[in-house]
């Protein structure tokens, strides 16, 4: 069993939901990436999504674009991202790590070489934003050969047919994008999300995480009510952007602890308990 499947099995038994923070590797500084990852885990992260910086992040809003630009200014390459994961794995053999990025850096490295190196570094899943299912058959089989989970996006506009198609390829979890737009967009319609999740879960047999538009404990709680996992990206990057180097790990940990409270307030242990914040 992969680390991701193991995690969701454990959480299901505890009737808890997963909290998945996203940070961009190398932002604000490559030396802070591994400490940030450990801080996130200590504050309650179940999985870490690690962004691979790219020069043309077409699906990202301004906040994650800036994170990508800062990381690139620090000279962070895909190979270095893998080295950072390996370094994280030195002290944490439990927490799944999912790489999220764009196709070109992966293709420049070569699919086989990338998958082998990612597996060796301790990566668990890979989401390539601009590989929709119809363009990712070869990639999925290469990932599988290295026991890596291919993570796919689904959107409010995805047809039933596409959901089924993603179901045949995806493992680990599916990332449901809760609204039209790019990362960092504001409005989140929880009722609309709630209406879609059970169908996706049933059709794909894979846990469903929801992201885009989750900014605080209240939205995290609302999403945790309906989804298997809550993904938070832009809000965390914002905190990183506005923190001094010395305090960035602490401030991100405080934010994550709040989000954790939100997620746990609606699940087993905390059912009905009000999030105190």
């Amino acid at each position: 069993m992969t680390r991701i499947a193991g995690l969701f099995g454990k959480l299901r038994a505890q009737q808890r939901k997963a909290l998945i923070p996203f940070i961009t590797a190398g932002d604000p500084d490559p030396a802070l990436t591994v400490p940030l990852m450990h801080a996130l885990v200590q504050a309650g992260a179940d999985i870490i999504e690690l962004g691979v910086p790219f020069s043309d992040p077409m699906a990202d809003g301004p906040i994650i674009q800036r994170a990508s630009e800062r990381a690139l200014a620090n000279g962070v390459s895909l190979r270095q991202v893998l080295a950072l994961v390996a370094s994280f794995r030195h002290d944490d053999r439990e927490t799944p790590v999912v790489l999220m990025g764009y196709a070109n850096p992966v293709e420049a490295m070569g699919l086989d070489e990338f998958a082998a190196a990612a597996a060796a570094a301790g990566v668990d899943g890979v989401l390539v934003v601009d590989y929709p299912p119809e363009e990712s058959r070869a990639f999925v089989s290469v990932l599988r050969a290295h026991s890596l989970d291919p993570i796919f996006l689904l959107a409010p506009t995805s047809s039933e047919e596409r959901i089924a198609q993603v179901g045949t390829l995806a493992s680990g979890y599916i990332y449901y994008v809760s609204l039209k737009g790019v990362t960092g967009s504001a409005a989140l319609d929880v009722a609309a999300v709630a209406a879609r999740i059970p169908g996706i879960r049933a059709r794909t047999g894979v846990p469903v995480g929801v992201g885009f538009g989750i900014r605080d404990a209240a939205t995290a709680a609302a999403v945790a009510e309906v989804a298997d996992a809550v993904v938070v990206g832009s809000r965390i990057i914002e905190e990183i952007e506005h923190s001094a180097r010395e305090t960035v790990c602490d401030r991100v940990a405080v934010l994550l602890a709040e989000l954790r409270c939100g997620v746990d307030s609606v699940t087993a242990g905390g059912k009905g308990a009000k999030w105190a914040g």
Binding site: A59, A103, D130, Y131, P132, L153, A155, T157, V177
Partner: peptide, 8 residues
Amino acid sequence: FVAETLIA
């Protein structure tokens, strides 16, 4: 080669 959000 686009994100799922553009496919429809």
